[in-house]
Design a protein around this nucleic acid. Structure first.
Lengths: 238, 238
DNA sequence: CTTGTTGTGCAACTTAAGTGGCAGTTGATG
DNA sequence: CATCAACTGCCACTTAAGTTGCACAACAAG
């Protein structure tokens, strides 16, 4: 992308806001942005195929991508993660150069930056700031995946659902973000369960006045009471 | 550790065999080894506390460590991973400096190398070879955790058990390694199930002549037949 | 050799979670 | 504004997986 490109400074500032690029010096960031070009995708499209991530690296500028895996024998699906602005994809391919067989679907209309992944690997050595900022990002990913697996084994579906809700609640406003507009089906796939079970729990939470439920929208009524109920069921988690 | 230390060359060669240090130049590796000292722990001890991993980094020279998490309300335990010679612990703390609350138990008598973790963080920048070798290691970890979570959602206990067995089978000798001497209880905790269920499946596999079972020992009788049975139950995994 | 501990096999049972089905609602689309 | 697809709420039902309990075997330690 050339400096003259329309929206150049918009993309530059977007990168600046990503934790991975924010520590990189402006001059280096201009250097890096040179190698990117922008792409747009519409909601419900599949912008990041397993093939393309072997050769390209993507930075999300706006919109969300749902990353999932399928069992085609049972038609069961598990949403591993939802990526948003500032996230890099696919970080695993960046590290080990192997194919990563997943399904990536756009949850919103999206803007991405794309660059050859081999070039991004060079940045790791040419730009220590980039390298240095990537490591904590990887740590966060490792913790997230590790906790996902642990939760699936150690907690029941009610607890996993409420953990998901609490994790995505803005502590200031008390509003849900990132998952606020998902269907029960999608929520179920995020916690490794099925729509029906999630719906049962949501009805219970609604009946105990803890949640307000509308089509594709959850809202916490009383976060204190919700936390209390959570602790009652899982006393050891303090 | 000084060059004069007994077993210095033994430790040096052990590091050389770890994928993370094998690419590091000898002179640099001597530099690195300077900062380590060795420690021994006996089977069934807890060598790596969550506290100690904030300040220290460990490299396993011999023996295995079982990494697990607990739900103290239900007494359920999940064995996240088993680390062996060449593995670093705790890689997550190395990346993000935060506490990692897990239980690490020695499965064998063990030798470890210990160094201050802050020093190891400096190596990342001082020694590009070390940095470069760490990244694929992190990629492997990410894939492993991601697959663990996916498996828990997408596959039944039989499939998870057989996947565990197959993953730990040496493709040359056909023998089990790493998990060969675990109890059914431990195997269950690795696949997120319970002893009783694992035992049921193992009896079935024994009755179909696929496994030989002794106390704390599993052996595959006919890997071809086992793979066939596996495919029959999970046709889409080719 | 005896004793105690840990691991294994097996059976009866309970239950959380998943399946299937359907009616009613909502919102998007032409 | 009529139609259709997607989402939701609620049933009754099934089942894989987990629980409890116990007898016996293997091994380790004194």
């Amino acid at each position: 992308m050339k400096k003259e490109t329309t929206n150049y400074s918009y993309y530059f500032n977007s990168l600046k806001q990503s934790p991975i690029f924010s520590e990189v010096e402006d001059s280096v960031l201009h250097e890096i942005l040179k190698m990117f070009h922008s792409k747009k995708y519409l909601k419900d499209n599949y912008p990041l195929t397993s093939e393309s991530t072997l050769y390209n690296i993507y930075v999300i500028i706006s919109g969300r991508v749902e990353i999932s895996v399928m069992n085609f024998d049972t038609d069961r699906e598990y949403i591993i993660d939802i990526l948003g602005p500032g996230d890099i994809y696919d970080v695993i391919c960046l590290l080990d150069k192997k194919e990563h067989d997943i399904i990536a679907m756009a949850l919103d209309d999206m803007e991405l930056l794309v660059a050859p992944i081999e070039v991004a690997r060079e940045w790791l050595y040419a730009h220590p700031d980039f390298n240095k900022a990537l490591l904590p990002y990887l740590g966060k990913q490792l913790r997230y995946y590790e906790e996902s697996a642990s939760d699936l084994v150690l907690y029941d579906t009610w607890t996993r659902l409420v953990k998901l809700i609490l994790r995505n609640t803005d502590s200031d406003t008390g509003k849900l973000s990132l998952i606020n507009d998902l269907s029960h089906e999608q929520i179920a796939k995020m916690i490794g369960s099925v729509r029906n079970v999630v719906n049962r729990h949501i009805q219970d939470l609604k009946n105990s006045q803890l949640l307000s439920v509308k089509r594709k929208s959850l809202e916490i009524n009383n976060i204190q009471k919700l936390l209390e109920e959570f602790k009652k069921r899982n006393s050891f988690l303090t």
